[in-house]
């Protein structure tokens, strides 16, 4: 099988086991620029592992992952890290903001890791915080803001480098539905306007409804519902 034409990130026949636990068993995936794809499935089905493999965080045991024509499996750890720094953005459920840094410093962090000067990075960070309506929190530390605000700060951080793919792993898992929807709206709006693709791992249908299409993972196998019909 070859990746569908025009896809930005595609994976074929991914296999990954953690010891005796098989997390992925021949999963496939593809996403186009500007597309939002939900990865759904019951807990323990391998959703997060799929995301980690796609993002180059965890190398799969076998299978291929191509990003923009490049094969991820052949890259060194350093090269994959560099890719994550510059091309990808990440939003997790919680525990991702550095508690000691202020919100604006947190948002600026990925830029600074890429070597942008502090001043410039924080100016760009503030711009994104404005878009996500959290610019008034810039001097606060993550411990001093609410869950919804913190998650928006995290979204700003995921988008600050202008990534081509944003990986969101249960981004609203710790939020109530109102805050969750707001975060999803801001995330998908911002991603669409930047033509960034979003890989959205979630088990909530209402969150998945913000996607363009969904992929269901069950027992480590994926099922692309659009192509199945």
């Amino acid at each position: 099988m070859t990746p569908p034409p025009g896809s930005l990130l595609a994976a074929e026949d991914l296999r990954k086991a953690y010891g005796p636990t098989v997390a992925l068993d021949g999963a496939a995936f593809s996403i186009h620029p500007g597309e939002v794809v939900a990865v759904m499935g019951p807990s323990g089905s391998g959703k997060s592992t799929l995301l980690h493999c796609l993002a180059g965080i965890v190398p799969p045991d076998s299978g291929s992952i191509t990003y923009d024509g490049r094969e991820l499996a052949g890259m060194t750890d350093a090269a994959r890290s560099a890719l994550r720094r510059s091309e990808f953005g990440f939003v997790f459920q919680f525990g991702q903001l550095v508690p000691e840094l202020t919100c604006v410093e947190n948002v600026a962090l990925p830029l600074r890791l890429n070597g942008t000067s502090r001043k410039e990075a924080e100016r760009a960070a503030l711009g994104w915080m404005e878009r996500l309506e959290v610019d008034d929190l810039k001097g606060k530390r993550p411990g001093e803001v609410s869950g919804g605000q913190g998650q928006r700060v995290a979204v700003a951080r995921a988008l600050v480098t202008g990534p081509r793919v944003v990986f969101a792993d249960e981004p609203t898992g710790a939020l109530d539905s109102l805050n969750g929807e707001r975060v999803m709206e801001l995330l998908t709006d911002a991603a669409r306007s930047a033509n960034a693709a979003v890989v959205l791992v979630t088990h909530e249908a209402r969150v998945a409804a913000y996607s363009d299409r969904e992929i269901v993972v069950r027992d480590g196998k994926s099922r692309d519902m659009e192509r199945a019909i």
């Binding site: 709206e185 209402r206 409804a209 913000y210 269901v216 519902m225 659009e226 019909i229």
Partner: peptide
């Protein structure tokens, strides 16, 4: 039966996407 459920879910999600879009 799993196929039926998956197809139904897909259909439900399609409706939900339309509703979400209208809501926005």
């Amino acid at each position: 039966a799993a196929d039926i459920l998956d197809t139904q879910r897909s259909e439900h999600l399609r409706s939900m996407r339309i509703l979400t879009d209208r809501k926005r």
